[in-house]
């Protein structure tokens, strides 16, 4: 099962589910990470964490462990 944390620079993928084990999962959904959406890893910070994703026409930075609960199809 691949998650958004494993994406490479410029790689696109579609979200299949959000893992509700992560306490931040509701906020991730609210900000636009919903199943069916396409995301692209655009930037990672100097220490590879946080990671910036392009989603729904904007850029959102989240931590690697948060990206790890975004399950890709």
């Amino acid at each position: 099962m691949k998650t958004a944390a494993e994406l490479k620079h410029g790689e696109k993928a579609r979200i299949s589910d959000i893992n509700s084990d992560n306490p931040s999962y509701k906020r991730l959904i609210e900000i636009g990470f919903t199943p069916g959406q396409e995301i692209e890893l655009v930037n990672t910070s100097v220490f590879n964490d946080p990671m910036a994703f392009s989603i729904r026409g904007t850029l959102i930075a989240i931590r690697r462990n948060e990206a790890d609960c975004i399950i890709l199809s």
């Binding site: 906020r27 904007t58 850029l59 930075a61 989240i62 931590r63 948060e66």
Partner: peptide, 11 residues
Amino acid sequence: DNSSFILELPA
């Protein structure tokens, strides 16, 4: 409690 960093990078 839960440490989190979710931030929109505005254009």
